[in-house]
Design a protein around this nucleic acid. Structure first.
Lengths: 232, 232
DNA sequence: CCCAAACGAGAGCACTGATCTCGCACGCTC
DNA sequence: GAGCGTGCGAGATCAGTGCTCTCGTTTGGG
């Protein structure tokens, strides 16, 4: 993180890398990751395809860079939405903001959503660099819960966690330095996967035959999750 | 549906089309849809790549055939699991069976799951022929609810559906000849999208950092959805 | 029996990702 | 300020892809 880039060459290099990503993102938005062609990007930039390899060692590396950017884009949008809602005082409003930010971004950037939440398909292990950007959304959700002022242990008794699950979640809490108890983490995972389940189904056409404009159903689901999360 | 195929040529044609799909499915399971190559399939079958086009007009048509098969495979497995559970007497057991059938199939055939529930990416409209196979899982869920003997209108009052959503769901009920009221349909959609949200996240590596072996969390989520569905 | 329809092989087109070599120019070192 | 090594872009090349077209051959119904 040196403040000033040293040479003009370095500046040019960083700038060109950025332009490559921009052009690639345009092609991605236009036709999807499947059709993203290094040569087409190079053509648009007026350079030889081989020159691109000076900046990204392979097509997959370029895609990984776009994945990181996408995670950060949705993460940033979610964080802003949550902050704008005064989460400590109005956790339910913050939760609504989070959900609408996710769905809004997804609908505006369907191909980028598909890139990060679609099918990376097995054998693919997320590169180290994607982990932190990826975690921004779930962490934002956990912050809402932590700041909600509710008793996060939740109603004990009936809905107590099964022992093995509680133990597993406790290791997750410890490993990530989270400050919510396992029952709240379980509810958060439930809400998180549920919301992305709806958004994914909507975007990928699985709701075409049923709640096609999913706006109303999404709002309904968001409120049900808010109830389960115990948000006021 | 003529009982006996007419000529030997027709028999050979049907058989070869089946062999092509089988080989393609093997390649799909091995490396994913992205890498599925018509020429590789043709090589494995010892025929010229151009000959494949006598059976499938394009690569996408071959993939569509595999999609239909995959929908039917998971649908059949779910239906068997539900039937085996005596859904009318034990709706909750049937619901568990449905969920475990979905997740089990998904984990055994990750690439096929990705093919149908992954990112078809926008602009793709499901061919007519995929609609019926696609609907088998959600319809199985609705049958569980219908036969559960519960008051499907649900607790009126607090959790009454917002008017617009109720109206939208009523049109869905009418259009598909469903025999469950809108509130039950809303809960079914909630559970359906929620379960697939977890399975998708698990398969696509989004849970890697948290509940990595998702078995316990999945069971937990299935029970919570059963509660919300009002299953005994 | 015979002709048209179905069929498979092969060549070819326009692409793709990736690699390699080759000059050129930039920028650091002396 | 001169010179050299490194970074860089262009072009050729390779293997592989989906898809089309043509051309003999096989086959089965009229």
């Amino acid at each position: 993180m040196t403040g000033a880039t040293r040479t003009a060459r370095d500046r040019a290099r960083a700038e060109l890398a950025h332009e490559i990503k921009s052009a690639a993102r345009r092609h991605l938005a236009a036709q999807g990751a499947q059709q993203l062609s290094l040569r087409a990007v190079a053509r648009e930039l007026g350079m030889a395809s081989s020159a691109l390899y000076r900046y990204f060692p392979s097509r997959d590396d370029l895609l990984t860079a776009l994945i990181v950017d996408a995670y950060n884009a949705v993460g940033e949008r979610v964080e802003h939405a949550v902050e704008a809602a005064a989460p400590a005082e109005h956790p339910r409003v913050a939760w609504r903001g989070l959900c609408q930010a996710v769905r809004g971004w997804a609908r505006e950037h369907p191909h980028e959503y598909a890139l990060i939440y679609g099918s990376p398909v097995p054998g693919y292990q997320a590169p180290e660099q994607t982990l932190a950007p990826f975690a921004r959304v779930p962490f934002a959700l956990l912050r809402i819960l932590r700041d909600s002022g509710r008793d996060l242990a939740g109603p004990s008794g009936a809905s107590a966690l099964p022992g093995p699950l509680a133990a597993q979640l406790q290791t997750v809490v410890d490993a990530n330095g989270l400050d919510v108890p396992p029952p709240a983490l379980a509810r958060a995972l439930f809400a998180w996967t549920g919301v992305f389940g709806i958004v994914g189904f909507e975007l990928f056409g699985q709701l075409a035959g049923s709640v096609d404009p999913a706006d109303r159903f999404f709002e309904y689901a968001v409120e049900r999750h808010a109830d389960l999360l115990g948000l006021d």
